[in-house]
Design a protein around this nucleic acid. Sequence first.
DNA 1: ATGAATGTTTGAAACGTTTACATTGGCGGA
DNA 2: TCCGCCAATGTAAACGTTTCAAACATTCAT
Lengths: 342, 342
Amino acid sequence: MPSKPTMRDVARKSGLSIATVSRVINSPDDVPAPTVEIVNAAMRHLNYRPNINGRRLKMRHTRTVGVLVPTLANPVFATSVQGIEQEAHAEGLTVLLTSSNYDPDREMGAVSALLNNRVDGLILTLANADSNPVVDLLLAEKIPFVLLFNQPYRADIAAISVDNAQSAYDIADVMIKRGHRSLAMVAGRFESSDRSRQRYDGFCRALVDAGIETPHLVQVGFGETDLIEPLRDLLCGPAVVTGLVCSTDMLAIAAINACRAYGLSVPGDVSVGGIDGISVGGLITPKLCSAVQPTQEMGRQALAFLRGLITGQSNPESLLLPHHLSDGESIGPFRRRSSTRI
Amino acid sequence: MPSKPTMRDVARKSGLSIATVSRVINSPDDVPAPTVEIVNAAMRHLNYRPNINGRRLKMRHTRTVGVLVPTLANPVFATSVQGIEQEAHAEGLTVLLTSSNYDPDREMGAVSALLNNRVDGLILTLANADSNPVVDLLLAEKIPFVLLFNQPYRADIAAISVDNAQSAYDIADVMIKRGHRSLAMVAGRFESSDRSRQRYDGFCRALVDAGIETPHLVQVGFGETDLIEPLRDLLCGPAVVTGLVCSTDMLAIAAINACRAYGLSVPGDVSVGGIDGISVGGLITPKLCSAVQPTQEMGRQALAFLRGLITGQSNPESLLLPHHLSDGESIGPFRRRSSTRI
DNA sequence: ATGAATGTTTGAAACGTTTACATTGGCGGA
DNA sequence: TCCGCCAATGTAAACGTTTCAAACATTCAT
């Protein structure tokens, strides 16, 4: 049972040395054309494929980057990974993908596994970027990494994100300008997403700036697609909230669904806004009004930036990309709504 | 500049040999407890992490599986990858993810890259599973692989899918039963998806069985989220189609959007059905009627089955998982619609 | 002819593991 | 006392690359 051909086999077959074969593979320009052809012929003949693990072991770098996202079930992250993949492919890099399922406790394990693979660098979306043991570890071991979507306090950490607080502020502001005074935030659990908290902060600031009293807040678990129960009090209670700012578009879509389940029209009875700008938001009825971030582009930039860190050409630095509000229909003018009961 | 600690360093530090260290890592039960503790202490002290590439080179297997999907932008695939990841994580396997962007020409390159990584096996969603050079290569090299979502003719290829034709048949049938006689299929390009063609076949069969004349067909490029232009003739033309069977839920959602753009109500004027069962379909208005497949579970099963192939415990075999129709509102009874112009 | 300069090619030592096989030392039984 | 045995550990040879230093071959000026 002949095993896979190795460089040694190719060398034997072509009557040349293993070193020459290696040079044909890695820098054919340093080898005379006829020799290159001989070696290539031998490789074709043997169906040779280089064993990347051999190379990785020998070389100081692996041309591999590790990626950690909370989940692929949310299109935001799927899209960002798309961007990362795209750029990685263009650069001939391999991507090692893992997800934490929004569980902070799984982050360390995932990163550890990536480090055991000796990735050259990492792109991470963490539950909480501040005072995170993963970040400390990476800093201590001097492994290049870029945070994606996280917006850490520290300035000496590479991070690519939008202004989370401002995004929420802007959405809330739209509602306020349309006459809404009783707003609630529907947010993913703070402990599994610092974005969620930052967005809540922005939401609160908008309300304060408008002189509106204590904001409502509902925290829901991630992966939760059914908001009917969680929003019962908000939508059926005495509060009569007319505006729902959601910390993600996925939540916003689920919130609209919940409104509908309670017989409330969006935006007739309740206005709903999201943050993220996932593409499906633009297709649904009513078209989702959202603070859009360039998700895929962010992935691409994260990889490009990481490359800079790896080659030592750039220094850790936070990049805040601009967001913009989509012209959705899910936010309408304030209209007093009759207290609804189901 | 001290490099990363190796097993040799741990051995030196603990006063034992490299072989013992290896044994402590791989089969601690074969080593006396005190020795294990000494070695562990040394590892902790040095911050040692095993270099997986060294192991991979030495061992015959890599405990890594390669995954190729068309794109992560479609939640179907993102979700299936979630399932794969989940199961892989449980088994302690590493996943190497790549995407082809629906381009058949990129499949070979992607798989090649995965093979260079010496993956133990592959999970693939191909543009076309029949007479595909990638499949031939894998068969020839005897690399374990399972196709996901693809439904190949050959029975000796491992594949996990639903019955694509039947899924489309069922959706079309619902419409027919509701009185629709003029149906069209909105399908992804056949050359980038054999599922699309198989689903079209099922669609046609349903029409034939109902004695309905030549079906309409619109093929659209994948990644296309704007169907307004592609569906113009169908929705505004003289044909007066009242039912749209879409080859994927993403297309269905886009189709509903297009209907709306032309002032057509769904399901009032036009009924729309999809296939896949992505979760967002259940949240939108109207709730999408779809032939639902257990996407994430399919990913999990694909990995489980691949493991069987790798360990030689099972043989290639096609698994057809059951699908079911979701109780959506996007399909309604036939209603003559006035010819609309925009 | 000689030697330098140039252009090709090679030998061999890593890289960090795993593991078959060898060695050690301690102990019980003859 | 000696032998053999067993458990615990060690030695060293892979695995498939890359790459440095050295060898060899060729050309050309002297």
